[in-house]
């Protein structure tokens, strides 16, 4: 039995990811939990997240998830999704600046013009972000966009390069030199759509909502033993 823990720290909808894992997994038991022992006993761990980073980090710290995630990353495969990926970084620009877990070196930045919409960027009708033709782009970045694979990580197995995945986010990861991106996406800027570091694989998109490509990535994760 492949034991999978989906870390629950009270932020948002974890049922989608649990259902997708049950759908692709053979002989898999999925536990949505915040219990340290359950998470540490699992074979594979998912670190999801939605919503505002300040609230996420507050709950992560309050429940001691910060230490659990750090320990999991040393011992077994960890897949971080969306705000879960952002939480791994050193800090985020969101909510006026929030310190994150610092397991991967880099920052989380706003897509648009931060100066124009400081504090509540969605108010601005013009995000300040534009494509190569100069057309103004909406923020959040919501919908299906291409991910260019930049390595041969086992989690990409059976997934065509430039497959579209489903994104919904207003902030993106900018990695420091020395860290490894596994996938890049362009939306006004080129940003890290996937990264890897030892046992960690992290994605900005939602594999559980990305149909065939996303389900294949989850299948690959369940088959991955880490490093």
């Amino acid at each position: 039995m492949n034991k999978v823990a989906v870390i629950d720290y009270g932020m948002g909808n974890l049922h989608s990811v649990a259902k997708a894992l049950e759908y692709v997994g053979r002989n898999v038991s999925v536990n949505v939990t915040s219990d340290a022992a359950t998470i540490l006993q699992a074979d594979h761990v998912i670190f999801p997240g939605v919503g505002a980073i300040r609230d996420c980090m507050a709950e992560i710290r309050r429940l001691g998830i910060d230490e659990i995630v750090a320990e999991v990353a040393c011992r077994k495969p960890l897949l971080a999704i969306c705000v879960g990926m952002q939480a791994l970084m050193e800090s985020s620009e969101e909510n006026g600046g929030v310190e994150c877990l610092g397991l991967v070196k880099g920052q989380v930045r706003f897509f648009g013009n931060v100066d124009a919409g400081a504090g509540s960027p969605v108010n601005a009708s013009n995000s300040g972000l534009s494509d190569e033709q100069g057309n103004s782009l909406k923020v959040p970045h919501m919908g299906w966009n291409c991910v260019k694979q930049t390595d041969q990580h086992p989690l990409w197995q059976g997934i065509e390069d430039n497959t579209r995945f489903y994104f919904v986010h207003s902030y993106y990861v900018a990695l420091c030199a020395g860290e490894s991106a596994s996938g890049l996406t362009r939306y006004g800027v080129e940003f890290t759509a996937a990264l890897n570091k030892g046992n960690i694989f992290a994605v900005q998109f939602h594999p559980e909502k990305s149909q065939h490509g996303g389900l294949q990535l989850l299948r690959n994760f369940l088959a991955w033993d880490g490093v």
């Binding site: 782009l137 970045h141 299906w144 966009n145 291409c146 260019k148 579209r164 362009r186």
Partner: peptide, 8 residues
């Protein structure tokens, strides 16, 4: 290679 428009 840009964000796709969606059909719902």
């Amino acid at each position: 290679m840009a964000l796709a428009k969606r059909i719902i």
